[in-house]
């Protein structure tokens, strides 16, 4: 703890002869006295500033002169900038949402205006035909046994079959454009009803549905005179539920349009 400041304590007590120079020889003491008679130049100091500092006023003008302190002005400017930034960001976000929503609506309207093809008209979702097709398949030939096994597997694991996959896809893909395109596009999971129809129509439908149906061309040709409905879109090798889901998810986007 330091002691209180006392300026009088800094003044040396007594003359220069009585201070630390008492042990000096006479010539040196005389020289010291002569040197002390020379007064150094007084420095040019800003005494007004020093006195103001000593009085506690500080260097900056008093607060009453400006009305507001610098801290208050800085806070006000910062708050104004913050409010402006928040309002601008909100405006930009709302504008962006409106633009993207209008664009989506326009694209949806354009995709809904498409006319479905003949093959698409002929195709019926398999879920509508599942009970009938299952009943017919009980009397199917050994060539259709594989397809029947796959169908039973699909029915056992997931009621609804391929339609269920589409529902999953609709849930998984959030874009309405993509789901709408899937609805219009014939895929492997769409079964074709072929009750007692000539082979030309069946082959035409098969070729329109991609290479997955080529493997069943022999089966369709050999049993074209049969009274039973033949699933022309059934793959040669049975696919599991997971494989069907993977195929559906891996559809390239360019094929959707």
């Amino acid at each position: 703890m330091s002691e209180p400041f006392d300026p009088d304590s800094f003044e040396p007590a007594g003359g220069p002869q009585t201070r630390d120079a008492t042990g000096l020889p006479a010539p040196l003491a005389d020289l010291q006295l002569r040197l002390q008679q020379l007064r150094p130049r007084q420095p040019q100091l800003d005494l007004a500033l020093l006195e103001r500092l000593a009085a506690g006023g500080g260097v900056s003008p008093p607060r009453a002169a400006t009305g507001f302190s610098k801290m208050q002005l800085a806070l006000a400017v910062a708050a104004a900038w913050l409010c402006g930034a928040i309002f601008g960001a909100a405006l930009l976000l709302s504008t962006g949402f409106r633009t993207s929503d209008a664009l989506t609506q326009g694209q949806l309207a354009a995709s809904d205006a498409r006319v479905p093809t003949a093959a698409a008209v002929e195709t019926v979702p398999a879920s509508d035909e599942m009970p009938d097709r299952g009943a017919v398949a009980d009397t199917a030939t050994p060539q259709t046994a594989t397809a029947e096994a796959e169908r039973q597997d699909a029915q056992r694991t997931k009621p609804g079959g391929p339609k269920r996959l589409l529902e999953i896809n609709e849930r998984f893909w959030e874009s309405p454009l993509r789901v709408n395109s899937l609805r219009l596009q014939p895929s492997e999971q769409v079964f074709i009803r072929a009750p007692r129809q000539p082979n030309e129509l069946s082959v035409a439908s098969r070729s329109a549905n991609g290479p997955g149906a080529d493997a069943t061309s022999a089966t369709a040709a050999s049993h074209s005179d049969s009274a039973r409905p033949i699933n022309l879109m059934q793959p040669a090798t049975p696919k599991s539920r997971q494989q069907l889901l993977d195929d559906l998810l891996n559809l390239p986007t360019s094929d959707l349009y």
Partner: peptide
């Protein structure tokens, strides 16, 4: 503990400012 007031400052300046400047 208070700081140095004006009177103490004047005393220091009058008695030691010249020696400080020479130093």
């Amino acid at each position: 503990m208070s700081q140095i007031d004006e009177q103490q400052l004047r005393c220091i300046v009058a008695g030691h400012a010249a020696a400080l400047a020479l130093y």
